[in-house]
Amino acid sequence: MKKLSLGSIAAAAIAVTLALPVSAQNIAIVNGKAVPKARAEALAQQVARSGRPVTPELEGQIKDEVIAREIFMQEAQKLGLDATEDFKTQLELARQTILIRELFADFQKKNPVTDEEIKAEYDKFAAANGGKEYKARHILVEKESEAKDIIARLKKGAKFEDIAKKQSKDPGSGAKGGDLDWANPGSYVKEFTEALVKLNKGQTTDTPVQSQFGWHVIRLDDVRQAQLPKLDEVKPQIAQQLQQQRLAKFQEDLRAKAKVE
């Protein structure tokens, strides 16, 4: 039996030591080509960002997916499909998409929205939507004569909700008996708002109100102080809105500075 020298034993030990980290970095060897674990990790991160938990079962599915992609990619390369102009064009578009995504992510990371900015935006919202809210109903028709006839019928005891369902041209509120729900009066067109705020609770307009949409018969059902959400309830939405606005401004600035011939 051939004796092993101390040098050969040491060399073998070093080879094993070096092989361990290399194999640990791969999830498989496909047709002699290593499939790096980083691919599976990147795919798992994409799944996690979508809100889906990465379970051990899913990790196994991701591993299978990465290996399958390597098999299919090798076959495509064998057929020379990676040398076509169409492939090169698509590859460039994909490269641009990834780079642009990284650019925007880097910008947002370096320019975070602060709590002070969120609070300031909330205060603006509260100032614009504070005050009173009105719960109203309306019946929308095309002609003034129709509106006058409806007002006359209401004075004789006809039910507002029934007329709205049958005659109102507003598809949104008509089916609900003319109900417009609670709203800030400023959310309506000027003519509608001016007529609405003059009404007392339970009162209906005596004369038709004309707007760009047609002729309205308006009834005020109730009035209350505006019910605004608390800052903590809308903080994520405000932060997202401010981030989008800031990113849009960043994009506009880049376009403005670019020399396009």
Rank of each mutant, 00 (worst) to 15 (best):
K2F: 14
K2Y: 14
S5G: 13
G7T: 13
I14N: 09
A15V: 11
P21K: 05
V22T: 03
V22D: 04
S23D: 13
I29C: 04
N31C: 06
A34G: 08
K37Q: 07
E41S: 08
E41V: 08
L43N: 11
Q45E: 07
Q46R: 13
Q46I: 10
Q46F: 08
S50D: 11
S50A: 12
P53E: 06
T55W: 06
P56A: 05
I62P: 03
E65R: 10
F72V: 13
F72C: 11
E75W: 11
A76S: 09
Q77L: 06
L81R: 00
D82M: 03
D82Y: 02
E85L: 10
K88N: 07
T89I: 11
T89E: 11
Q90W: 15
R95M: 09
T97K: 15
R101P: 07
R101Q: 15
E102P: 04
E102F: 11
E102V: 10
L103Y: 10
F104D: 12
N111T: 09
V113H: 06
T114C: 06
T114S: 15
E117I: 02
I118E: 01
E121H: 06
D123H: 05
K124Y: 03
N129T: 14
V141L: 05
E146T: 09
I150S: 02
I151H: 01
K155P: 08
K155I: 02
D162V: 10
A164G: 05
K166I: 09
D170G: 03
P171G: 12
G178W: 00
W182D: 06
G186H: 11
S187G: 15
V189M: 03
K190F: 04
F192M: 02
A195T: 00
L199P: 01
L199E: 00
V209D: 01
V209M: 00
Q210F: 10
S211A: 13
G214Q: 03
G214L: 08
G214R: 02
V217W: 03
L220S: 01
L220E: 00
Q225D: 15
Q225T: 14
Q227E: 14
K230N: 10
L231H: 01
E233I: 02
Q245A: 09
K249F: 03
F250T: 01
E252I: 07
K259F: 07
